[in-house]
Design a protein around this nucleic acid. Structure first.
Lengths: 235, 235
DNA sequence: AGTATAAACTGAACAGTGTTTAGTGAACAT
DNA sequence: ATGTTCACTAAACACTGTTCAGTTTATACT
């Protein structure tokens, strides 16, 4: 009996925890991360502010947990984009890029939270010694890492096609899948980030910027009319 | 005399205003934007918090003014990078890209302020009807616009070389200098932004990512081994 | 059943935050 | 010397995240 009762408590705890996270997500989606105050959150779930601290160490830990969910959403979106087994690496890359940008623009508050406003979660993931990360993070596979691996896999596929034979550093060596994936990520993140921080600044639509980048990336090896070598830094 | 005395007052006002901005910049550079509180700022310049409101409407306006200075710094950095008249467009592009990324990494707090934390200023600039912007912004040429124009000019130079014959949309048309400049900006911003929000995430150094992007951008027209046309969206 | 224990929960407080306002004091103009 | 204008501030207001003593509720044991 003792165990069963404990389970009931445990279930209630878990249930409230998820209620807190759901309410947090709702507030963030509706009014942005800044509107997520402890008192508002507490009122929304019908508890006192102090109760929140029985389930989370502080506001940052709540943001971190919400961020994790956001990463899981992102992972799902990217995963679906590369699911087509019949697609070529280039097609997959296009699909992936548009899926990424679309996710950012359709979930602005979530995207801003996980990449711009409060990088606590991504920090915990990528700065932790090695998967050792804090308990809240380690259960199941980390969705940020999973999303990252999708990009790396895609980069590896691209390299195999010979479409992007980029070399870096001196002495020159081929770029690794990780490096290409990170470059890819950075470019897409730049598009989303600029669009979100100032709707209207990049006057060109995000889709056009994405297509432009993809054309740059996927246009195939050079015909030899290149300007100068890249190795030595200009100026 | 009346005029002279007024001038003296005016000078004192201006002097205090600049003192406020200098102190703000110092606090932001030392401890980040969040550490810029009205009370701390007031204490630093030896006045009461309420005095700040005699020179600025609110904290946001201070951030906006500091942001403007940050943009001026950025403009100077970019301007210097493209100053060499003997450089080819490709060389200028490389120089520009590295100058941009270096500025972001060497002035993380400033960069975060003007592009990530408080986009009030850039919003005021790019969302205002047309140069009509608020009084504090309009005096002199806006540095953000000036920096923007450097990028556009550079993009136009690149196009002229035939190095980047990208077309977009359907029916296909050549990309404009503005579109290429914005794409360029977005990619570089992505590199800086990712590096700043999570030092250690893009495991590749920013310089390598910059070089990788530049090689992508400047490798010259395709040899025809392209994969598929870009126009139709994959999936 | 009643009682002891443990867990859940809260009201009130603390030290912060941005901002406003009434009121003081000093510099100026006449 | 007087009247006016400007610079300035102390104190308050409504917030914020967070902590803690104390109360209520639910489980466990006899």
């Amino acid at each position: 009996m003792a165990v069963k009762k404990n389970k009931r408590r445990e279930a209630a705890r878990q249930s409230l925890r998820e209620e807190i996270l759901a309410a947090s997500r709702a507030i963030i989606a509706e009014e942005g991360f800044d509107a997520l105050t402890m008192r508002r959150l507490a009122e929304r779930i019908g508890y006192s502010p102090a109760t929140l601290y029985l389930h989370f160490k502080n506001r940052d830990e709540i943001a971190q947990a919400v961020g994790r969910i956001g990463y899981a959403d992102l992972y799902r979106a990217l995963s679906a984009a590369v699911a087509d087994a019949a697609a070529t690496p280039a097609q997959r890359t296009r699909s992936l890029a548009h899926a990424y940008v679309r996710f950012g623009l359709e979930n602005p508050q979530t995207y801003a939270l996980i990449f711009m406003e409060d990088p606590a979660y991504i920090k915990a993931v990528f700065q932790s010694p090695q998967g050792q990360s804090s308990q809240a993070v380690a259960e199941e596979k980390d969705p940020a890492t999973a999303a990252y691996e999708i990009l790396i896999g895609n980069a590896a596929g691209l390299i195999a096609t010979g479409l992007i034979p980029f070399s870096v550093e001196s002495p020159a060596r081929p770029a690794t899948p990780t490096e290409i994936a990170e470059s890819f990520w950075a470019s897409l993140h730049g598009i989303v980030s600029l669009k979100l921080t100032c709707p209207g600044f990049p006057s060109a639509p995000a889709e056009l910027l994405t297509d432009l980048y993809l054309e740059t990336l996927l246009r195939g090896p050079s015909s030899g009319v290149s300007s100068t070598k890249v190795g030595k830094r200009a100026k």
